[in-house]
């Protein structure tokens, strides 16, 4: 992959985020590329989530600049975008997955997925249905699709959340510890899904402190005390790979992981 010119979708410079006196992001500059599976690792409390929310425009930066270029040709200044612009971005260009599923409790899994399609605003009803059916099949949700979130298992719910995040074919998928609340089997399943999506061309930004999850990315950033202190190029994940695991482990050792 190295050497090939990659399209930049996010460009942040000197990003600072302060919460009442505490500087959580202390001046981060980074670029995110299209078609990458970027992983942000770091100890708990290092500011990983804060960075993800700042980049995705969910939370405002305190200082610094952040530009985004996605489906549309013009650049968006995320740090200073209007609420309307951010709403559009969330609807049409960004997908989100969190540790807790955040499904709408009064809609069935299928309706939850379709709702995201409807909100994105650029797909016809027919397209949405087709896409939803494909995703339900891909996420193996056929049995659970007509149940409410409270009536399905954690794994099913999280798979539905992933499906909902990508139904509108977003430019980038943001995932904040999506496997944090899952057991081993379900974790494996969700990671496999992300890997598949990545292989199909989905750009992903994943925040995690799970080594297994980090292995799936092709570019790993290490965050500590509000600074990015390391970066590792891994190449695409193509199934279990001893050498890849070793590479990551030795890199992480440098940060006393």
């Amino acid at each position: 992959m190295k050497g090939k010119m990659k399209e930049i979708i996010f460009q942040g410079t000197d990003m600072i985020k302060t919460f009442e006196e505490t500087k959580v992001l202390q001046g981060i500059s980074l670029e995110l590329y299209k078609d990458d599976f970027t992983v942000i690792m770091g100890p708990s409390g290092s500011g990983k989530s804060t960075l993800l929310y700042a980049v995705s425009g969910m939370d405002r930066l305190s200082e610094g600049q952040l530009f985004y270029r996605g489906k549309r040709s013009e650049m968006t200044d995320i740090a200073h975008a209007t609420e309307k612009e951010l709403t559009y971005l969330r609807a049409a260009e960004f997908g989100f997955v969190f540790q807790s599923t955040h499904l709408i409790s009064s809609l069935t899994l299928e309706e939850n997925i379709r709702m995201a399609g409807l909100i994105c605003g650029s797909m016809s009803e027919k397209e949405i249905r087709r896409k939803t059916d494909v995703l339900i099949h891909q996420m193996r949700l056929e049995k659970a699709k007509d149940r409410l979130p409270a009536q399905v298992s954690g794994g099913e719910a999280q798979r539905a959340a992933v499906a909902r995040a990508v139904v509108a074919e977003p430019e980038i998928l943001f995932a904040d510890e999506p496997t944090g609340a899952l057991n081993k089997a379900n974790t494996e399943e969700v990671l496999n899904l992300l890997t598949t999506l990545y292989a199909e061309g989905q750009s992903i930004l994943l925040v995690t402190h799970d080594r297994e999850a980090a292995l799936r990315g092709n570019r790993i950033l290490y965050l500590e005390d509000g600074f990015i202190v390391g970066e590792l190029e891994l190449g695409s994940y193509l199934g279990k790979d001893r050498e890849r695991e070793w590479k990551l482990a030795s890199w992480l050792e440098g940060f006393r992981w």
């Binding site: 489906k71 549309r72 049409a92 260009e93 809609l107 309706e111 379709r114 709702m115 409807l118 909100i119 994105c120 605003g121 650029s122 797909m123 016809s124 009803e125 509108a168 074919e169 430019e171 061309g201 989905q202």
Partner: peptide, 24 residues
Amino acid sequence: METCFLAGRIPLVVWVNCMKKCQM
């Protein structure tokens, strides 16, 4: 990846989606 935002064919789709959304 297919482009999602096409300025031309919006009105009807948006309207129908809006109705569906509200209905749901």
